[in-house]
């Protein structure tokens, strides 16, 4: 089976400082894979490079049958069916919830389809329907995360890139978000998620990569990686 996303020997640096150094990974269609890593390990750098917001120094990124992402601009990459849930939500704070969702469907030519999908989002997230005309900046953290996820789904992507969706949320909200991640994946959307919350992420993912200072040091089925001593030590608070 060919992977939906295939990354080979990716290297990205900020000036002379390498942030990602020879990372290879793949996401098969319909799978939910997670990259675990501490702050500064290079997780967000990988995501931003896939989105065309950073340029790789070396390596290849192929999507959906071999399209070379390294040659495309961000808006062209989005058109291929890649959507993003950015770290810290990054909503358009002065725009209404509804306008944020509409912009999620900016690249979809059929605006009636966009309206229908937004309707589905409001059905799934009634809280957002109530607040549709409020500016996004006035919502709580959890609600903003729902907007960020709904915004990414309006374009009906093949691959969803999620950057620390649980960051800065209350514990109850964190559980909701991971349940939602699993629900989205069951709809058939492949997900590549980066997370620090290893315990929760390993519960929902099929496959896990462990990233340390820009390199992948462990890779395997989520349950297997979760039982490794190194992961236990770093993320799961030792062997309690």
């Amino acid at each position: 089976m060919t992977a939906l996303l295939e990354v080979k020997d990716l290297a990205v640096s900020y000036g002379a400082v390498p942030a990602v150094d020879g990372v290879s990974l793949e996401v098969p269609p319909g799978e939910l894979r997670v990259i675990l890593g501490a702050n500064g390990a290079g997780k967000t750098t990988i995501i931003k490079t896939l989105l065309g917001l950073l340029r790789p120094r070396a390596g290849a990124m192929r999507f959906n049958g071999g399209v070379d992402l390294g040659r495309l601009k961000s808006h062209q990459i989005h058109m291929l069916g890649i959507a993003w849930v950015p770290e810290g939500r990054q909503l358009w704070s002065t725009l209404s919830v509804l306008d944020n969702l509409r912009l999620g469907g900016f690249a979809v030519a059929d605006k009636a389809l966009v309206d229908r999908r937004i309707g589905e989002m409001f059905e799934r997230f009634p809280r957002l329907a109530e607040r549709r005309n409020q500016v996004a900046g006035s919502l709580s953290g959890g609600e903003q995360q729902m907007v960020a996820i709904a915004r990414a789904l309006v374009s009906s992507p093949k691959l969803l890139l999620m950057d620390e969706p649980s960051l800065g949320l209350a514990p109850l909200m964190v559980r909701d978000v991971f349940a939602l991640v699993r629900e989205i994946n069951r709809m058939g959307i492949a997900i590549l998620m980066v997370e620090q919350n290893a315990r929760q992420a390993l519960k929902v993912a099929n496959w896990a990569y462990l990233l340390e200072t820009g390199r992948i040091v462990e890779s395997g089925p989520a349950a297997e990686v979760g039982s490794k001593q190194s992961v236990q030590d770093v993320f799961l608070g030792g062997h309690a």
Binding site: K48, L51, G52, L53, K73, S74, H75, I77, H78, M79, A83, W84, P86, Q90, W92, S93, T94, L95, D99, R102, L103, G104, F106, A107, R151, S155
Partner: peptide, 21 residues
């Protein structure tokens, strides 16, 4: 117009949502 305001606040996110900045 909405895309214009989106670029004003977060050009990167706008680009990643298909806006030709």
């Amino acid at each position: 117009g909405r895309a214009t305001r989106a670029i004003a606040e977060r050009p990167d996110v706008a680009a990643a949502f298909g806006v030709n900045v």
